[in-house]
Design a protein around this nucleic acid. Structure first.
Length: 422
RNA sequence: GGAGAGGUGGCUGAGUGGCUGAAAGCGGCACCCUGCUAAGGUGUUAUACUGUUAUCGGUAUCGAGGGUUCGAAUCCCUCCCUCUCCGCCA
């Protein structure tokens, strides 16, 4: 979100951003509303100043036992006018607010301008696409044959696109979570967080999921709560409405949570196996940093996510998302895609975003460089590190053998207590 | 879920209708004083919007939202949160 002053003074940048993003928001409503608001404000504030002044006079008259009837009557009328004007202001501000909260972030200048995901820029590749000297199987076949995942019973107890990990499969998931959390806390300097998996409306607003994307969320109507679609939501909002001390920055948090997504409108697209689920596990990293450091922090964050794939020895590539594909709240976003030899596709396992002050403004997260100085908004960043199901796809498909077994990546062996899944 | 208490500035804590954007203390900042260490003195110290813009004003904000009133931190209503006790429960 941007404040009114910024929008007013940087309207050309906003116009370019909206155009480059192919966003449908109507920008023409802003100027008339903004001007109307300010003219209403100056009128109503003039009347309030008058009321305050005369009320003081009334107090003085009463103190001297004088008669203030005339002034009181006069102010009663002024009060009526103020009430009516306040209502007009409220309406105009509501309309402006609707506009503000739907305005997307401005992409950084090195974000490629593009029309679709085809215009995303591959900026890095690591490792070689796995070559297998036999016909590779897809992960759903491997998982079913090895008894790692029960697709049918997941659907029975919840619905389609819900799965159940069983036996060694469940243990593999747990091993991955532990491995990733250990890596980020012990090697990368993150503090582990275990947040609520359910959040309120305000929290969903803070990170930008609301109001635009309510249909993608699972909602608990009775309490007006939402199941989190990513740990980013509760973890970023952990510091909402706070003024942090400058010397405490940067703050690095990492969290494992399940993630719940309705995936509205996504049916039929890559839905086989573990590709797209309504519930999945993810380890997330969240950073709160000083504005001038956020670009460097973004690169470091990307490195932290890459480290997981490198440790697992999985081939991947890094995409700099173009303006058409970048998220609503992000100023710049890298996607990490892992190669899956069975389905023969690059799979997105991580999104690594710099939100600059966009979320901090919505969630009101600020910091003070030194005592006595004005608070400034922090920059927030986050990255998956990583999403579990597609990581599991890559492990099963890239490490499969012609005997139908799966070799366990070296770093996972201590966590899993076995070298091979058979 | 039931009963009670409470939510005031960075913190502690006054304040039951006007002179309170808010006492006092602590903390912070600036300056002064002090022949060591320590201390002392004076001033200053919230956020947002808005008008003019070196500047200086105006409005709003005492958990949130409504209401009463010429005027609300103070009175009324609704909601949220915290604490204590009871009940229930992994």
């Amino acid at each position: 979100m941007f404040d009114l002053k910024f929008i007013r003074e940087n309207f050309d940048r906003i116009e370019k951003a909206v155009k480059d993003r192919h966003d449908s928001i109507d920008l023409s409503v802003f100027k008339p509303l903004d001007e109307k608001r300010r003219s209403l404000l100056s009128e109503v504030e003039r009347l309030k100043a008058l009321r305050n002044k005369v009320s003081q006079e009334i107090a003085a008259i009463k103190k001297n036992k004088g008669d203030a009837t005339a002034k009181i009557a006069e102010m009663r009328e002024v009060g009526e006018k103020i009430k009516a004007l306040d209502e007009s202001v409220r309406q105009v501000e509501q309309e402006l607010y609707e506009f503000q909260v739907r305005l997307p972030n401005i992409p950084q200048e090195d974000v490629p301008v593009g029309d679709s995901e085809a215009d995303n820029l591959v900026v890095k590749s690591w490792g070689e696409k796995t070559e297998l000297d036999f016909e590779p199987k897809a992960h759903w076949d491997i998982a079913e044959q090895l008894g790692l995942i029960d697709f049918g019973r997941g659907a029975k107890v919840a619905g389609s696109s819900f799965v159940t990990f069983t036996g060694k499969g469940a243990r593999l998931a747990r091993a991955l979570i532990n491995f990733m959390l250990d890596l980020h806390t012990e090697q990368h300097g993150y503090t582990e967080i275990s947040p609520p998996f359910v959040v309120n409306r305000q929290t969903m607003f803070g990170t930008g999921q609301l109001p635009k994307f309510e249909e993608d969320l699972y909602r608990v109507d009775e309490d007006d709560l939402f199941l989190i679609p990513t740990a980013e939501v509760p973890v970023t909002n952990l510091l909402a409405n706070e003024v942090l001390q400058g010397d405490n920055l940067p703050i690095y948090y990492t969290a494992y949570t399940p993630c719940f997504r309705r995936e509205a409108g996504a049916h039929g697209k890559d839905t086989r196996g573990l590709m797209r689920l309504h519930q999945f596990d993810k380890v997330e990293m969240v950073k709160f940093v000083a504005p001038e450091t956020s670009r460097d922090e973004h690169e470091k964050l990307l490195g932290n996510a890459e480290a997981v794939l490198q440790a697992l020895e999985l081939p991947y590539r890094v995409l700099n998302l173009c303006t058409a594909d970048i998220g609503f709240s992000a100023a710049k976003c890298y996607d990490l895609e892992v190669w899956a030899a069975g389905v023969g596709q690059w799979l997105e396992v991580s999104s690594c975003s710099n939100f600059e002050a966009f979320q901090a403004r919505r969630a009101n997260i600020r910091f003070r460089r030194k005592q006595g100085e004005k608070p400034e908004y922090v920059h927030t960043l986050n990255s998956s590190g990583l999403a579990l199901p597609r990581t599991i796809i890559a492990i099963l498909e890239n490490y499969q053998t012609d005997e139908g077994t799966v070799v366990v990546p070296k770093v996972l062996r201590p966590y899993l207590g076995m070298d091979i899944l058979k």
